[in-house]
């Protein structure tokens, strides 16, 4: 992947945002802060995440990179998947 093929991620593309590290070893946890806190606090968190998405280098895990081809962005319909968040 090159910088030329990378563009800003639109906020609408974020289907779910799980905050924190979740250090419990017996059950999976979810931070609930953003369900209740003010839009100002939630907005700051979201802005930090969007900033990270724009800047951090990408490392693909859990799959073979040869299966993956860099390409320019294009629009596509949402995909239904029962395991999706």
């Amino acid at each position: 992947m090159s910088d030329e093929t990378r563009h800003p991620v639109e906020p609408e593309s974020v289907r779910a945002l799980r905050l924190g590290h979740g250090a419990n070893c017996s059950s999976i946890g979810s931070v609930v802060d953003t369900l209740f806190v003010t839009a100002l606090l939630g907005g700051a968190v979201f802005a930090a995440v969007m900033g990270a998405l724009a800047k951090e280098p990408v490392e693909i895990v859990g799959g073979k990179e040869k299966d993956v081809q860099p390409r320019a962005p294009r629009s596509e319909d949402q995909v239904h998947d029962e395991s999706a968040p």
Binding site: R6, P8, V9, S13, V14, A48, K55, E56, V68, Q78
Partner: peptide, 25 residues
Amino acid sequence: LESTAAVVALDRAGVRALGLDGGAH
């Protein structure tokens, strides 16, 4: 993410914005 303690579910358009395509996945 590395700089922020978060895991994000991105749709396909979001992944393509990063310059990637899921191919066989």
